[in-house]
Every structure is written in structure tokens, then in C-alpha cells.
């Protein structure tokens, strides 16, 4: 299995497409950082409007921690799409270039291949998150320094003390890892039904976008279903930036995501095991 995983990772990281994602992450993060360097004061003024009417907020509000949060807020919607780029390609891509049949004439079990593909996609997603952590957190802190962090929620203004922030980012990245695992599992599941990778990639993106709309739109009809949608729980990382941290809700979200992940992977194995390889 380890040998097979190494081969999978070798394939993923020898493909130019893989690095596009890393490039996109770096580009978006840099754009936000540069924009904040140039015009951050105005942005903060605008964002704090609701509070600054009544309170006088002074000090290094625009610090690396806040900017990291802004980058994550923007990027963590897009990272699933980048994860889909690799996970959606995992089986369908092999089918489309014709290597799937060659792979399966090797003494590998199909469930084994699915698990290896899943693991490799997860490793890729984790590396993407680590890269994001380096670029978003590392670079922002380097450029803007650290400080107390302000988190604007719709109904609350949260301030976290400087020494109480970093662990939250590590926890948030770990949670994002669970969310990305779920995305990878979904993309892999769609990948098993297709013989080219465009379908599963677009499919995953579509599902995530539509369900995110369901999750965020505050309509009664969506309220009823949104607790059951995995997209509702994907933003659980934000819970770590609340005070106090809603551990119960976060644990619940993590469990929902894990259950979805297991469900997706198990379905992939069952479907792939029964599939006639005609590509």
C-alpha cells in the first residue's frame, strides 16, 4: 500500500497541473496582502463601521492575524475547488488517458486502489493547506506583525488576545483538513462515474457551490436542511475564532464531515468494485 501511495504521489507531484493550485493559492493570498498594505486602513474603517460609531478602537488592528483570517475567509471557499482538481481526476483522469485498465491489470485490489487514490488526494489537500498556512499566516505575520485579533461576526464583535490566537489557527487548519478530506471523498466518488476528469471536477464544484448557497441563505426552507449539508459544517474552523470556542458545535461538525467522508469513500469502493472498466 505504501509503495502504491508513493507511486500515486509521484504521479500527482510530477504533473504540472498540480502546481497551478499552489500558484493560485499564493496569488490570491498575495493580492489580498498587497491590497491590505495599500488600502488596509480604509478597509478596516469600513469593516469596523458598526462598532466604531460607539467605540474607539485603536492600535494595530490590521495585523497579520486579521489578514490571515481574511485570506482564509476568501480562500477556504476556493480550496475545495482546487482539491477537486486533483481528487476528481484521480480515477476519471486515469480512465480518460487509458491508464486505468493498465493499472488494474497489476495485482492491485480495486478497494486498495480507491483507498490509495483517496489518501493521495488527502495528502495533496493537506500540503495545499500547509502551503496556505505558510503563505497566509507566515507571510502576513511577517508583513503586518502580530497583535490582538478582531473577528467580526454578524451579531458579535470578538477580540482575541495576541497570545491566544496562534493555537486557534493550528486548530482551524486541522479542522479545514477534515473538511478537505470530505471534499476529496466527494470528488473521488464523482470520479468513479466518469471517464474524463472534467465532469467530476465541475460536478464537485457545482455541488459545493449550490450547497453552500443553501447553507448560507437564511431562508426557512433551507434552514430545515442546512444542518444535514456537509457544506454547513465546512466552515466549522471559524468556531475556533469565537469566544468562548463552541467545542460542542465544532465536534459535531467534524463528526458530520467524517461521516460524509466515510460514506463517500465507501460508496466509491462499492461502485468501483462493480464497475466494468471499458475505458
Amino acid at each position: 500500500m505504501i509503495a502504491l501511495l508513493r507511486i500515486e504521489l509521484y504521479k500527482i507531484f510530477h504533473r504540472p497541473r498540480t502546481y497551478i493550485s499552489f500558484g493560485i493559492v499564493a496569488a490570491i493570498a498575495l493580492v489580498i496582502q498587497l491590497a491590505m498594505l495599500a488600502d488596509g486602513k480604509n478597509f478596516i474603517g469600513f469593516a469596523l463601521q458598526g462598532v466604531s460609531e460607539q467605540f474607539d478602537i485603536k492600535g494595530n488592528v490590521l495585523n497579520g492575524y486579521l489578514i490571515t483570517y481574511l485570506i482564509l475567509q476568501t480562500l477556504l471557499i476556493h480550496i475545495p475547488l482546487l482539491v477537486a482538481l486533483v481528487a476528481g481526476d484521480a480515477l476519471a483522469g486515469e480512465a480518460s488517458i487509458g491508464t486505468l485498465r493498465l493499472l488494474l491489470t497489476k495485482p492491485i485490489t480495486r478497494p486498495g486502489l480507491v483507498l490509495v487514490k483517496f489518501t493521495a488526494s488527502v495528502v495533496y489537500a493537506m500540503l495545499l493547506l500547509i502551503w496556505l498556512a505558510i503563505i497566509a499566516l507566515g507571510l502576513s505575520v511577517l508583513l503586518f506583525g502580530t497583535g490582538d485579533m478582531i473577528n467580526l461576526k454578524s451579531d458579535a464583535f470578538v477580540m482575541l488576545l495576541k497570545d491566544d490566537v496562534l493555537w486557534r489557527y493550528f486548530a482551524a487548519f486541522a479542522f479545514a483538513g477534515i473538511a478537505m478530506m470530505c471534499v476529496a471523498a466527494l470528488a473521488l466518488l464523482l470520479s468513479v462515474f466518469a471517464d474524463n476528469s472534467i465532469g467530476p471536477i465541475i460536478g464537485t464544484m457545482g455541488i459545493i457551490i449550490v450547497l453552500t448557497i443553501f447553507s448560507t441563505l437564511q431562508l426557512p426552507i433551507f434552514d430545515a436542511i442546512s444542518p444535514y449539508l456537509f457544506t454547513t459544517h465546512m466552515i466549522g474552523w471559524k468556531g475556533f475564532f469565537d469566544a468562548p470556542v463552541p467545542y460542542d458545535a465544532i465536534t459535531h461538525s467534524a463528526i458530520v464531515l467524517l461521516v460524509y467522508t466515510i460514506l463517500f469513500v465507501a460508496t466509491t469502493i462499492i461502485v468501483f468494485n462493480k464497475k466494468d472498466i471499458q475505458s
Binding site: K11, H14, R15, P16, I97, G98, T99, R101, L102, T105
Partner: peptide, 11 residues
């Protein structure tokens, strides 16, 4: 085995 076309990883 080779089946139909000899497809491999071009990159």
C-alpha cells in the same frame, strides 16, 4: 498485458 492502445503517463 497491453489492451487496445498502449496508454501511459505522457508527462
Amino acid at each position: 498485458a497491453i489492451i487496445e492502445r498502449p496508454d501511459m503517463y505522457g508527462y
